[in-house]
Amino acid sequence: MKLVELHAQVELHARSLELAAEVVDTVRPDQLDLPTPCAGWPLRRLLAHVVGQHQGFAAAARGAGPDLALWADAPVGDDPAGAFRRTGAELTAAFRGAAAAGRAAVRLPEIRPDAAVPTDLAVGFHLLDTLVHGWDVAAAVGARAPLVAAVDADEALAAALSAVAEAVPAAPENRTPGKAFGPRLEPDARGGRFERALALLGRDPAWRP
């Protein structure tokens, strides 16, 4: 990927983080035990996972080796929005730094333990995670419509999300319980690109607590 394209992708990723942060901003402490579309994960655990991923991807972008400890879930206490925005800002700075330095590949031990991953793919992976987990949070608190509408209205962001979702392996061995995504679902023809991406990843766009 050309450097200018990587810079553009990093800024697209920053937009995805801001949309997700706006969702997390609405979460109240009394909602942290609500169920989420991630089976068995209450909202508190989901947010701890998301913040831990921010820290792991940021470490990778700065050149860290394949140390899984850097990817551990990070408790969010009663201020998930603060934790999300702080670590999200650190991740954006790390991605921008990697692009400026021309870092071609990073280590993502949770995804590919034995080899580096091209930096543009890493940014794309996390863009997808950001929007999908942002939707998980929105679904848990009953406020998914604004996020879905915002992504569908942003042609570049919707296209980036769709491209990564379509590229996620769909073979049964990649979609078993415990994997990041469930078996693909049939998209609703009336839904937009965000809902189609969710269905491709095994998320039911109509999920309710």
Rank of each mutant, 00 (worst) to 15 (best):
T130Q: 12
L121D: 11
A21D: 14
L32H: 00
V137T: 11
R45F: 01
P209R: 13
A140P: 01
V117N: 10
P42A: 07
A138F: 03
V10T: 09
A160W: 02
E90D: 13
F84C: 06
V106F: 07
H7W: 09
R203D: 13
A89L: 05
V76N: 07
A101T: 09
L157C: 14
V168W: 04
G182H: 07
G63W: 08
G40N: 03
V137H: 05
L200A: 10
L147Q: 01
E195G: 10
R203N: 12
A116F: 08
F57L: 11
L32T: 00
A167G: 12
P37C: 09
A39W: 00
H54G: 03
W207I: 02
G82P: 07
R190I: 00
A170I: 04
L161G: 05
P205Y: 05
D154V: 02
R96C: 11
A171Q: 14
R28Y: 01
A83R: 07
D120S: 15
D25T: 02
R103C: 12
E186P: 05
V106Q: 07
H126M: 09
V123F: 09
A138S: 02
P80Q: 10
A199G: 12
L70H: 03
A159F: 03
E166V: 08
R28C: 05
V76W: 05
Q53T: 06
A139F: 05
R103E: 09
W41A: 07
W207Y: 07
G142P: 03
T87F: 13
D154N: 09
A180W: 13
L198F: 12
F57T: 00
E110Q: 14
L131Y: 06
D136C: 04
L70C: 08
L17C: 13
A93Q: 12
T36A: 12
V24C: 09
A171F: 03
R44V: 01
L3M: 07
A206I: 00
R175G: 09
E195M: 04
V23H: 12
P169F: 09
V123I: 12
G191N: 03
S16Y: 02
G202Y: 04
H126D: 06
P66M: 04
L34H: 13
G56P: 04
V148G: 10
P42N: 13
A104I: 02
E173A: 14
L161P: 05
P42H: 14
G52S: 14
G192H: 10
L128S: 11
A153G: 03
L3R: 15
C38A: 15
F95T: 02
P42T: 06
V24P: 10
F84W: 13
G142N: 08
A159S: 14
D79F: 05
R107H: 15
V106E: 08
E186F: 01
P209W: 11
H13C: 15
L70N: 04
A81T: 02
A98D: 06
V51A: 05
R203C: 12
A64I: 03
I111P: 03
D78I: 00
A140D: 01
T87Y: 12
Q31P: 03
L161D: 02
M1I: 00
V168M: 14
A197Q: 10
A153R: 06
A89N: 10
F194E: 07
E173P: 00
G124V: 01
L19H: 13
P80R: 10
